[in-house]
Design a protein around this nucleic acid. Structure first.
Lengths: 131, 131
DNA sequence: CCCTTCGTCAACCCTTCGGTTGAAAGCGCT
DNA sequence: AGCGCTTTCAACCGAAGGGTTGACGAAGGG
């Protein structure tokens, strides 16, 4: 399902347990069993969560001898951050533009239809494309 | 599953279709059918996606007569943003601290190895307060 | 009035997910 | 070697997700 990277990251963080793991890892590396210790679930379940985080690129684990530590990777966080900021900014710009339009409309406003205003949509050329 | 707000927001954005809807809504409000038009899925499916976004607080729809427009709400984005920044910062601080420790160790390298840098277990004490 | 369109609900597939149990590797120790 | 600990795989189960079809209520236009 999570074919694309962004989806994987968002999905990974959609689970409270996984977010908690990330939170703890942000304080320092840990091994699987250390990570598992606070939870009342099986170690295998924790391992599965870890795999999800790893597939999302949120976490890396230097392969090598036994106690393979788990380390947080922030690049994935940046990925999300970029996406969020882009759209937040767009909305805010739009709000400012809309305020202007509203102010202008106020001058023309004289019709009154009860229940809901009926404001002209500034159109939406709608370019699909997640990019 | 999504008992808590943050989980709902992350989960909502874990789907490419939903992210695309958010992207388009960031350009301007739209009705359900307008939103549905670009996709090759049923209108009902789109409506379901919309419900998910709404439950996550990412979208609001002024109730009233006919063409109930869908509007993006940025507060939910802020919620995620806060979470992400908090942990990103923690990791970065930790990196800096670690660099310092490393640098100091380098200096002591030819000193007597006397109870060296006690780098160790973050240990439990886990306060799973995700907040 | 009827009819159409839009929005919404409900029932039902099928796949993914979170979790479990059970068993197998790896590697460290004595 | 053998014990013990950590890490991993595989099969299974119940619940949630994404999608479909079918039907229904509420405006708007002839």
């Amino acid at each position: 399902m999570a074919t694309d990277a962004l989806s994987r990251v968002f999905a990974a963080l959609a689970d409270p347990t996984r977010r908690d793991m990330v939170a703890r890892l942000s304080e320092g590396d840990a091994t699987v069993s250390q990570l598992a210790e606070p939870y009342r679930m099986t170690l295998q379940a924790v391992y599965k969560h870890l795999r999800v985080l790893e597939d999302a690129g949120l976490v890396s684990r230097p392969r090598g001898p036994q106690p393979r530590p788990v380390r947080l990777e922030i690049e994935a966080l940046d990925l999300m951050d970029t996406w969020i900021e882009r759209h937040r900014d767009r909305v805010e710009r739009r709000y400012r533009r809309l305020d202007a339009v509203l102010a202008e409309m106020k001058r023309d406003e004289h019709e009154e239809d009860h229940g809901g205003g009926h404001r002209g949509r500034p159109d939406a050329a709608g370019h699909p494309g997640d990019s």
